[in-house]
Design a protein around this nucleic acid. Structure first.
Lengths: 203, 203
DNA sequence: GATCACACGTGATTC
DNA sequence: TGAATCACGTGTGAT
């Protein structure tokens, strides 16, 4: 495949300046001199192929010119770079917001050891009350932000807490509360107990 | 500035195959034939300049070859494109996570109207207790996620809640709790009251 | 010495 | 016409 073919096959039929292979070897003694003629052809072909590849990657192409192809590629790369930078910044800002609640390892270990030392064990009790309300008693490790995360999770599940009592003692967090579905639907005891256990395990 | 100069000024002193401008105009009659000679020179110069611009944008350059410059640009563009896609996905996932706790307008209005209807007014009381503890009583609008956000804010300020009681009534949220600095430092009554007011206003 | 990469000048071609 | 773009073959320095 020659360069001419390549350029001719491009969708935009702009192929000005291209001519068929010009051979000077008329029937004179001027058969061929240079040995790297074929190699040079290969090189040109490769270069043009790459250029077309580049062009195919760039979404907006103002012209088929070699120069403008590269030009468009340059502006496109700049745009992509800016996009990456701004996206990274945005993501980092969001992650900083989320990282406020990072756990501290020492507190984490302290709470568990303290509870073990005092013989306190985690537990989750769920009891049916009148209406759609459930009564909940939980004893869990009192790590930093524990209750906040619990509140977050319940809120996500559209579960409201009422008459909540919250006490910290010996590395443990004792929570008693009434819960109720925000949207009015009934809560099932076993289901909620499993949910709470999952939430606590995730914290 | 000639092409040779350009390539010669590049940091890698690779200028193989470049020779000084070859003029065939020996003192023979072979002065000049082609009229677009200078224009062609300009064109080549422009093209090479763009190529160098492109090269300067690409971080990793394996070789100074024209072909490899374009090659590297191609792989770089692909990498950038993938990066943009993955970053966009990540950001969207995070934003979806954050959007779980979006406020519902109707609830928001309902809470305020309900409180007004029953003549309940927002209030924040802070009283000094023994040690570093403060006793807090708050009556605020009971919007969805209100308490979660309050817990978040206090956690951020390294303030722990103990013996918390939380009741929802008539669109209002009644909170009584003891608070204490997590790091042991004393909390000042007025300061905390201002802080709580700010938090409530922000919610 | 063979290969590679390059710039060069030039005729052809398109707008 | 005239300017712009192109592929081509070639000489040459570098590897």
């Amino acid at each position: 495949m020659s360069l001419d073919d390549l350029c001719f096959n491009a969708e935009s039929g702009n192929n000005r300046g291209r001519m068929g292979r010009r051979r000077y070897d008329n029937d004179e003694n001027q058969t061929f001199k240079s040995k790297n003629l074929e190699a040079e052809r290969k090189r040109r072909e490769k270069l043009s192929t790459r250029l077309l590849m580049l062009r195919s990657l760039v979404p907006i192409v103002t012209n088929m010119n070699k120069a403008t192809i590269i030009d468009d590629a340059i502006t496109y790369i700049k745009k992509l770079q800016e996009e990456v930078v701004s996206l990274t910044q945005e993501l980092q800002e969001v992650e900083v917001t989320l990282e406020i609640s990072k756990p501290k390892v020492d507190e984490l270990v302290d709470a568990a050891e303290e509870m073990k030392k005092w013989g306190i064990q985690e537990e989750v009790q769920v009891t049916q009350m009148n209406g759609n309300k459930l009564w909940v008693k939980m004893i869990i490790e009192n790590k930093r932000g524990t209750f906040r995360k619990l509140a977050e999770s319940l809120d996500t599940c559209s579960i409201a807490m009422m008459d909540t009592n919250l006490t910290a003692i010996k590395g443990a967090l004792v929570i008693t509360t009434c819960i109720q579905g925000m949207d009015g639907e009934a809560l099932e005891v076993h289901q909620i107990k499993q949910l709470l256990l999952e939430i606590v395990r995730a914290i």
